[in-house]
Amino acid sequence: MKKIRSYRYPIFIFSLFVLTVLNIIKIVARSRFAVNIFPNLHYWLWTIILIEAVFVFNIKIKNVLKIALALTVVGGALSIFRIVIAENVLKFGFILWIVGYLFNLIEIVRKNEIN
């Protein structure tokens, strides 16, 4: 576990780097290759980055969940007005829900905080 934790910075930076490169290729070069690979990969990269971000920046789990809720609120509101990006916002929100939920569960089990 300790060993894994020591890799958190490189993993975080590498994931962020790949995501940025892909985004640049997608936006600037409009390469079909990048467009194709992007939908498969970018949610995974985001998930890794968010998990790493919790470690790197010591984000409180409550805040992760609150951001997830905030994104869900925004996504929900956008969906009421049938704005196309609503679904993407909700998807990012959902990733945060999963990340937050898992950290919360781990914390409960680790600290034995069961009520």
């Binding site: 789990i61 409550k62 969940l65 609120v73 919360n104």
Partner: peptide, 15 residues
């Protein structure tokens, strides 16, 4: 839906 999620965050320590 959102209220339930909000409530869940506030009670996140309850099994």
């Amino acid at each position: 839906s959102l209220y339930i999620l909000y409530w869940a965050i506030n009670n996140r320590k309850r099994l």
